[in-house]
Simulated assay, not measured.
Amino acid sequence: MNYQPNVEETIKLIKELVTIPSPSGNTEKVISHVEEFLRANDVKIARNRKGGLIATIEGANHQEHRMLTAHVDTLGAMVKEIKPNGRLKLTTIGGFRWNSVEGEYCEIETASGKTYTGTILMRQTSVHVYKNAGDAPRNDENIEVRIDERVSNEKDVRELGIEVGDFVSFDPRVQVTESGYIKSRHLDDKASVAILLKLIKHIKTQRVKLPYTTHFLISNNEEIGYGGNSNITPETVEYLAVDMGALGDGQSSDEYTVSICVKDSSGPYHYGLRKHLVSLAEKNEIEYKLDIYPFYGSDASAAIRSGHDIIHGLIGPGIESSHAFERTHTSSIENTEKLIYHYLLSDMLKY
């Protein structure tokens, strides 16, 4: 059955998701947003104790299950220290470098739920004051938040309700260009979440009958390593992580195709599932690239490490400048969505 995605609808979902702050450890708002979407489409849903969301669509075969996962948690930061001058020192959440957020607008959320805006800056930002403004290390000691409030000392900041442990999220600055590019922070992995939500809606509204009962895990701790390592049913045979394809020197992935990962830092992904995905792509004229990511781990590799006896795979749209100034193209979103659709309707591997 041919499937032609409505990419505009998927992009709309991506824009909604990236604008909801959700650094790992503080994902309730975005999980609730996804929950409302699924409930509106009459999908069976459940929460796990970690705060993730599991959507289930029953298939013709209920003895063997599939699970697909994508994560809504993002990179972010947390207040490490309130400085005597009223600035905030930070600690990172997830794997990124400070230079990738230098100059970025941010939002500080207090424990009471109140939010304040600010800017992430070097302590030595002004070239009129600091001779070493360009050479100073971008590190925990020099990076700080300038709060958009009239504060000049630690007491002023604490009177706002800001404390050590408050979450800091980054402005996504999402844009969609006329040439089809979508630029935003947190495309990792909210682009993939949007793709799964769009497919779930299509399956429900068009009454598509899946061959196997299929679970969709919207995980919320992937950036810190353990989002998708639990709540995998004993009947689950195949487990597919839908995450980004990382671009750079030596990589074959690009912003226009679906990336099929053959190996990451955890080792090779299941060879049979990889060949099955390639066969589906070629049969349905879906543009794809095979790639290896040496400094990468996914929820599928986390599941394998936690001892689950599953067939695991990893695919996703190609994301330029991952964990920094991310960008992809609508054609990559389209190719990824088409491959997942055909995978969901395909026969399971014989193991």
Rank of each mutant, 00 (worst) to 15 (best):
T10Q: 12
L121Y: 03
D171E: 13
M1H: 01
A46D: 06
S331N: 05
E81W: 12
H33D: 05
R87I: 03
L247S: 09
I315N: 02
G94S: 12
D243Y: 08
Y239L: 14
E149Y: 00
I315S: 02
Y343R: 05
N231G: 07
R327Q: 14
I14H: 09
K44Y: 10
S332M: 01
T91V: 05
D291I: 03
D42Y: 14
H312N: 12
M122W: 01
K155R: 10
K350F: 01
H342P: 02
S279Y: 04
S298D: 07
F170T: 01
D140Y: 04
Y288V: 08
E58G: 01
Q175D: 07
N26Y: 08
Y343A: 02
T69P: 08
D291K: 04
I82R: 06
D299C: 09
K114W: 05
Y105I: 08
C261V: 15
D171N: 15
G134M: 01
P234W: 06
A302F: 14
R173T: 08
E334A: 10
R305A: 12
L75K: 07
M78R: 13
K289H: 08
K263I: 12
A46Q: 11
E28D: 15
A46C: 02
N221T: 06
N284W: 03
N85D: 15
S192L: 02
S22I: 05
N26V: 00
K50A: 13
I260T: 10
Y296V: 03
T213W: 01
L53T: 06
S192H: 07
G180F: 03
E334K: 11
I319M: 02
L247P: 10
T330N: 00
I20C: 09
H71Y: 05
A70P: 04
A246D: 08
C261H: 09
S331E: 07
S252V: 03
G228V: 10
Q175P: 01
A241T: 14
K131V: 09
D166T: 02
V127S: 13
R150L: 09
G165C: 06
H270I: 14
R150D: 15
E64G: 04
G297M: 10
G307M: 12
S259D: 14
L53D: 07
S253V: 12
A111D: 13
E141I: 00
K50C: 03
T56M: 09
L217C: 02
D264L: 13
V176P: 04
E141D: 13
G313A: 11
D171A: 12
E282Y: 01
I143A: 00
Y116L: 06
I333A: 09
G225E: 11
I304N: 04
G307E: 11
I200L: 05
N231W: 08
R305P: 00
